[in-house]
C-alpha cells in the first residue's frame, strides 16, 4: 500500500493502523478450496464440527479465487495441475497467502518422480509449510496459527509499491 511513501513517517499512527489491519486480516482469512489428495480429507475434518475452522473466521471455504485470501494446497500437485494452480493464485486478490499442507505439497514427499511437482513453491510463493502425511487437523490449525503470527508481524503499510 505504501502509505508512508506518500505521507511520510507518521510514527504511532501507522503502527496502530498496521496492528488494526493485521488483526482484521487474521480474523477473516477465507481459504480457497484446493483439495487435491488425501490431505483434503483432513482439511474437511478441520472445517467440520470437531475442530471447527469457524473459530478462526475461516468457515467459508471459497471455491472462487476472487473471494479467497488464503490458498491451502492440500495434496500432491502434478505437473499438469501446476499451471492451473498458478492461474488460480494469480486470480486471487491481494493480500494473499499460501499454506502448503502436507509433505507432497511442501516438497513432493514420497512421490519423487517426474509427474509430481517437487514442492508447490516451484510455482507459487509459500508462506507456511505444514509437515505430516497427511497432517492431522490440529497440525493444519497450528500451521494457520503460524501464518497468523507471520501476518501479525508484517508491516503492510510500510512496504514499497
Amino acid at each position: 500500500m505504501g502509505v508512508e511513501t506518500k505521507l511520510g513517517n507518521m510514527g504511532i499512527v501507522t503502527t496502530t493502523l498496521e496492528e488494526a489491519v493485521n488483526w482484521a486480516r487474521t480474523r477473516a482469512m477465507w481459504p480457497l478450496l484446493f483439495g487435491l489428495a488425501c490431505c483434503a480429507i483432513e482439511m474437511m475434518a478441520t472445517a467440520a464440527s470437531h475442530y471447527d475452522l469457524a473459530r478462526f473466521g475461516m468457515e467459508l471455504m471459497r471455491p472462487s479465487p476472487r473471494q479467497a485470501d488464503l490458498m491451502i494446497v492440500a495434496g500432491r500437485v502434478t505437473r499438469k495441475m501446476a499451471p492451473v494452480l498458478r492461474r488460480l493464485y494469480d486470480q486471487m486478490a491481494e493480500p494473499k497467502w499460501v499454506i502448503a499442507m502436507g509433505d507432497c505439497a511442501s516438497c513432493g514427499g514420497v512421490f519423487n518422480n517426474y509427474a509430481v511437482l517437487q514442492g508447490v513453491d516451484e510455482v507459487v510463493p509459500v508462506d507456511v509449510y505444514v509437515a505430516g502425511c497427511p497432517p492431522r487437523p490440529e497440525q493444519l490449525i497450528h500451521g494457520i496459527l503460524t501464518l497468523h503470527a507471520k501476518v501479525r508481524a508484517s508491516h503492510p503499510l510500510r512496504q514499497q509499491g
Binding site: S106, C107, G119, D121, D127, V128, Y129, V130, A131, G132, P135, R136, E138, Q139, H142, G143, T146, K150
Partner: peptide
C-alpha cells in the same frame, strides 16, 4: 508431538 509447521523449508 505433532505441531510441525514452518515458515521456511530449512527450519524443517
Amino acid at each position: 508431538q505433532y505441531e510441525l509447521s514452518f515458515t521456511d523449508r530449512w527450519d524443517a
